[in-house]
Simulated assay, not measured.
Amino acid sequence: MALRGKQKSFLRSEAHHLNPVVQIGKNGLSETLLDQVDELLERRELIKVTLLQNTDEEASDVKDVFEATLHCDVVQTIGRILVVYRPSSKEKYQKISQQVRSI
């Protein structure tokens, strides 16, 4: 899914007030972590992921893995914080994606 510039800008503004809900630490990227992120994206559509100081992962590597395995968009990367978006497949959780489509 290719997002346009205005859509990315809207998502960045929506994510500004969010706190990171996923932290990647010394265990790095695992199947459990990817499953957790997948569930969170299904329910929230827009989340922040932070890389802790004790991780060996790089933000660009995490971005590539997320986009390849979870089929989501990393809207913004600032330092060690990623803003991740994916429209929910369940209609009752589609709040942000409806606004994104209207832009």
Rank of each mutant, 00 (worst) to 15 (best):
V75N: 02
Q36I: 09
I24V: 10
Q53S: 15
Y93H: 13
T50Y: 05
V22L: 02
S89T: 13
T69E: 15
V37G: 01
L3C: 09
V100F: 00
R4E: 14
S102A: 13
I24M: 04
A59F: 02
N19Y: 10
Q76L: 10
D64Q: 15
K92M: 12
K26L: 10
Y93K: 06
Q36K: 14
I24R: 01
L70Y: 04
Q76P: 02
R86M: 01
Q36H: 14
V49M: 03
V83C: 02
P20F: 00
A68R: 13
L18G: 08
D73N: 15
I47G: 04
D61Q: 14
Q99S: 13
I78T: 14
T69S: 14
Q7L: 06
I47N: 00
R44C: 04
S9L: 07
V21E: 11
T32M: 11
T55Y: 07
E57A: 07
A2T: 10
Q23I: 07
R12G: 03
G28W: 08
T50K: 11
T55K: 06
S60E: 15
K6V: 07
V74L: 05
I78E: 15
V75F: 01
L18A: 08
V22S: 07
H17G: 13
R86C: 02
V22N: 07
L51C: 01
S97M: 06
R44S: 07
P87N: 12
Q94G: 02
V62L: 07
V65E: 15
R86Y: 03
Q99W: 04
S30A: 09
I96R: 08
E91R: 12
D35H: 11
L41N: 01
P87W: 02
I81F: 01
Q99F: 03
L41E: 00
E42L: 03
L29R: 00
R86I: 00
P87A: 08
N19M: 14
L33Q: 06
G25L: 05
V21L: 04
S89K: 12
H17F: 11
N54Q: 14
S9V: 03
Q23W: 12
N54D: 15
K8G: 04
D64K: 15
D56K: 12
V62A: 03
D64C: 09
E31H: 12
E45Y: 01
N27G: 10
V37R: 00
Q53I: 11
K6Q: 14
D38Q: 13
